[in-house]
Design a protein around this nucleic acid. Sequence first.
RNA 1: GGAGAGGUGGCAGAGUGGUCGAAUGCGUCCGACUUGAAAUCGGAUGUACGGAAACGUACCGUGGGUUCGAAUCCCACCCUCUCCGCCA
Length: 425
Amino acid sequence: MLDLKLLRENPDRIQTQLNRRNGSYDIQAILSLDRQCRELEQMRSQLQTRSNEIGKLVGQKMKSGTKPDDDEILAFKAEGNQLKADLSKLEPREKDLKAAIETLLLQLPNLPSATTPDGKSEDENVEIRTWGQEYKPKHAVLPHYEIAEKLGIITTDKATKIAQTRFVALLGAGAALERALIQFMLDTQIEAGYVEVMPPLLANTDSMTATGQLPKFAEESFKCSDDDLWLIPTAEVPVTNLYRDDIIDGAELPIQHCAYTPCFRREAGSYGRDTRGLIRLHQFNKVELVKLVRPETSEEEHLKLLRNAEAILEALQLPYRTIELCTGDIGFGAGKCFDIEVWLPSADTYREISSCSNFYDFQARRGNIRFKESGQKGTHFVHTLNGSGLAVGRTMAAVLENYQREDGTIAVPEVLKRYLGRDTL
RNA sequence: GGAGAGGUGGCAGAGUGGUCGAAUGCGUCCGACUUGAAAUCGGAUGUACGGAAACGUACCGUGGGUUCGAAUCCCACCCUCUCCGCCA
């Protein structure tokens, strides 16, 4: 959520920054509602001052022995009743205005960072670096879903029977590989200083709103309609919301968490895309990195988080490239975002495997996550950051392709051998 | 799911209609004493919005209601705890 005060004081600057994004966002309606609201607020506050005075005066008189039916008291009561009548007209209007402002404010995306490159679409994203040698063997490399079916370590048909399309079930070595990847990723990030969390996989509307999934992207998530609960689309939701409405002691910052969770996404509007394999599923595993940091350190912490995610691919010896998203492609809540893309030889291309975002104070405002330096007055919003470290299914896909030998077997990456207890699939 | 109890400041815990934003204790901060520390003593210490400030307004789980006046009374909802039932 954007700072209403900032919006009020620098409307042109905010509008200009919003215009760098895709889509059009108009702040005029908010400003106009805000003006009305502030006017009402002032009037209401004045009436209330008088009302409070009367309450106190009556109390004092009664205490000092004035009779309840004394003329003076009756006059106060009459004035009090009049004030109450006036207030009862103002209060609902102010409330409605506040709600309307809130609704509009929640729909506004974050401002792109000044350092985020301008661009209309993903075509204008900027490559930051590449790592590793793209795997282009003489022999053909089967797509991960074909080799996985061949090896009998995945079944989509049966998963579809159980649930729906865009679900898979892993079997035998496939399940073991997925589990090994999760374990390896967690171990690595814990070693790097992240504290593991195993959070609830369902989150309520307040939590989903705080991290920005709601209200705008309701159709992207699975909802439990009998309860105020949603299946989490990413561990970012529960982990960030650990601190919703908290005032954190500054000495505890930066807070760094990693979490393995399944993630659930409806993938509405992506019907024709990536219909086969592990790339786009309604349920997938992910190890997520989440940081809550002091504002002045967030840029630096963002780069560190990105490096923590990249380290997984380097350890697995999977070629990747890192790109910085342009203003036309960054997510709703992000102000700055790097994507890591892993090499998929069967497609002769890089595919997104991690997205590392700096939300600045956007989520902290929505979730009211603040910190306080001990001994100092006042609270400040934290900055929140998160990134995948990594999407596990896509990592498995990358392993199945980049480690695929001519004979159709898969070499086990060196760092996974101790987890899997074998060196070939 | 059934029965009961309860939700108050960073924490614990008073407060059952009137100067209550809220006693007291702990914690934290400042000061005194001390070579230093502990102990002790004195003072300060919630959040948000508006205002240059004085100060004003709101907030005692949430939302309504009664009243001149609500933490306190009434209604609804949410959550927590205990017991019973069920259950990995």
